[in-house]
Design a protein around this nucleic acid. Sequence first.
DNA 1: TTGTTCTTGTTAATTATTCGACAAGATGAC
DNA 2: GTCATCTTGTCGAATAATTAACAAGAACAA
Lengths: 221, 221
Amino acid sequence: MTLRGRKKGEAVPQGVVVRLPIYFRYLTELESAGVERIASAQLGEALDFTAAQIRSDLSYFGSFGQQGYGYNVSELLQQVKQILGLQRVYSMVLVGAGNLGKAIGSYEGFRKQGFDLKAIFDIDPHLIGNHHAGCVIRSLDELPEYLKENQTDIGIIATPKEAGQSVCDIFTAGGVPSIWNYSPTNLTVPDEVIVEDMHLTDSLLRLAFRLNERGFGGSSE
Amino acid sequence: MTLRGRKKGEAVPQGVVVRLPIYFRYLTELESAGVERIASAQLGEALDFTAAQIRSDLSYFGSFGQQGYGYNVSELLQQVKQILGLQRVYSMVLVGAGNLGKAIGSYEGFRKQGFDLKAIFDIDPHLIGNHHAGCVIRSLDELPEYLKENQTDIGIIATPKEAGQSVCDIFTAGGVPSIWNYSPTNLTVPDEVIVEDMHLTDSLLRLAFRLNERGFGGSSE
DNA sequence: TTGTTCTTGTTAATTATTCGACAAGATGAC
DNA sequence: GTCATCTTGTCGAATAATTAACAAGAACAA
């Protein structure tokens, strides 16, 4: 898994990490559409980035193109998958079987990329025992024991904000290396644990801000 | 709605837009907890930013603190609300009443901030007529007509990727100034339309990338 | 072949963002 | 009232990210 290219060893800028999944998504579409080759200029046009940025981003990981030709779509897609770590399978555990938790659990988008939801936990006695997304919903009390017995790559938190930190603590105590957090709170974790936040409300507030920034009228309260 | 402060007129950096909702969320927690004052150093400690960054961010919009004292929590929260545009009420329309759409529709987090879900549309005849989140689910065919009669601030797209662009087109044709997009596709919109993407899979791929970047072992396929 | 057109990967310049430092001014103890 | 302590808002330095430009080399047409 050594990374090639001139920038070997350098840290990958945040922006590159954000753009990689976008490249992945678009390349997947291109491949499905039967497109064989693409140049950075075309990619940039489609995704609204500069061609230089795309070439620069990819150069962190290697040289995947060819002068005078561009990139072979399938080959580049393969490389991007490799870069993102999609040659692996990831085991996931979900805590919180409310509306949001259920939606995440039954989302098809990542299951086919090798992200396997292995178990669901909740604290609500009414939900425990129900089936969802091919899993039985278990009591949160059983989570520490479960984590001892089952290697887990990603812990998903889809609880109200009050429970977010305590669930997170159970995950980190159980050795789960990464957290996908939908609970609207800032989690405190040991340095080595990776947290990826999905704060729905934050996203909506950014939208509201930009709406107002552009002098949008809107309805007054 | 004139913005004060030394940087008046300058564009607000992307990072500031990302951090504002985080400030909002934390200040709300502080106020609920009865905390009266806070210094940028403490805020930075709690949110893992530098104190200078927080002061710099706020300075884009005005001077809200006091030397030797810090910030009054309630007052600063009020200002941040104003900056984000939360003195307004926003009308929203949701397209897509699948698992994810339902979860978004019934999410309490933004309803209380003045984001009002007014109507839900779907294309599936089995769903049309059902009630959800206080709305009847209507046929997507009725959306253009609805938008003519009802001023709408935010269009929410929670459809599969195939339908994303066409729903987006209906929104923009209907004069909706902003889109909150959950469909896993890159939308093409006129310049003046604001798009805020929430791509669940992209987020998960960023997590996978960082997991691999740190030389995480994981399960091989 | 040969020459023209393309397009990459990389460098250097530009632009943007973050951060440390500090003067100015408020607070609060005595 | 006086002084030591805090803490802001801002400036300039340092760091980071983006972009334009171009040499090198492949593709393709004639």
